[in-house]
């Protein structure tokens, strides 16, 4: 410290520091960019290889596995796009994910509201039910769940049969995220609404719901992505035409294991919706991770 302070009057410590920082950053930049490039290559490489593999023929893939498409072939992708199964799976995935998301968001915000803003005796114990729910993965209950849904509720092989349990297992997390979010809304808002004659339900509809938009979008995105990517529950519950995309991808790759290029094309097309959705919602997901309130 004293050494820097001693450097001439025209160099304040901060300026000296900034200059030093700039110099060092420039020196380190090459290495940083090199490492970043390597990380990007390792991360995207396999995904890109799959996408490009869909533009090659099986002969090309066998001859030179590490090569680029030469010439580019569209047949694999066209084949998948003309395959009615692909669209059926995509439809099932969409419907199940949308249903799950709607249930989770609606029931989640409803449950979080009294837990955040009402005073009652059972408030903390009920909240603990949700917290403990985080500890129960669907895997633990998967066999009885399968029996319950197929035999007792006769909802095997239906959209609802998958969406309802998925929503149930996503709810604890949703409530645990939303409660502090709703708690953070200032008490004055509620008092002002009460002075203006709004009931607590009126407050919920007219003030709380609009204000908690960002929180609901965050939990909604998480529920959607979770449902879209789910494998185990659909694997046990859905067969034939009711299968979702992950099941379709897995089955296609084992049924057509000789057709590597076709498998790549099918897989690449199946990941596009999730990727687009993710890129559109990326800010929400990252914001959710960093704390929804700031958004």
């Amino acid at each position: 410290m004293s050494a820097i302070l001693g450097t001439g009057p025209q160099h304040t410590p901060i300026q000296a520091l900034r200059a030093k920082k700039r110099a060092r950053n420039q020196g380190g930049n090459v290495l940083v960019y090199a490492i970043a490039l390597a990380v990007v290559a390792l991360t995207l490489g396999p995904v890109l290889y799959g996408v490009l593999g869909g533009f090659r023929t099986n002969a090309q893939l066998a001859q030179n596995p590490a090569g680029l498409p030469a010439p580019w072939v569209l047949d694999n992708y066209l084949g998948v796009l003309k395959n009615p199964d692909f669209w059926r799976y995509a439809m099932n995935s969409t419907m199940i994910a949308v249903t799950t998301t709607l249930i989770v968001v609606v029931l989640g915000i409803m449950a979080a509201y009294p837990l955040a803003r009402y005073q009652f005796r059972w408030r903390e114990p009920i909240f603990m039910v949700f917290v403990l729910g985080l500890l129960f993965p669907a895997t633990v209950a998967i066999v009885p769940l399968f029996i319950l849904i197929t035999r007792d509720l006769h909802m095997g092989n239906t959209w609802w049969g998958v969406a309802l349990p998925q929503a149930a297992f996503a709810l604890p997390m949703t409530v645990v995220i939303l409660r502090p979010f709703l708690m953070a809304l200032p008490q004055e808002l509620e008092e002002a609404a009460q002075l203006d004659g709004a009931s607590r339900i009126g407050f919920f509809w007219r003030i709380l719901l609009p204000l908690s938009g960002p929180g609901m979008v965050t939990v909604g995105v998480l529920a959607f992505v979770g449902s879209w990517n789910a494998y185990l529950l659909p694997l046990l519950l859905l067969q034939g035409d009711m299968r979702t995309l992950p099941l379709g991808v897995a089955d296609y790759s084992s049924e057509h294991s000789a057709d590597t290029a076709g498998v790549f094309a099918f897989t690449a097309l199946a990941m596009i919706p999730a990727l687009i959705f993710f890129l559109a919602m990326q800010k929400r997901i990252v914001n959710g991770l960093q704390g929804a309130v700031k958004g």
Binding site: L44, A230, A250
Partner: peptide, 22 residues
């Protein structure tokens, strides 16, 4: 870079698994 690094996480385990299997 953050977006790119996050991509594998957004893919389902099934899709990641099928690609890596190949």
């Amino acid at each position: 870079l953050r977006t790119i690094i996050f991509v594998p996480y957004v893919l389902s385990e099934v899709i990641a698994g099928v690609i890596w299997f190949q």
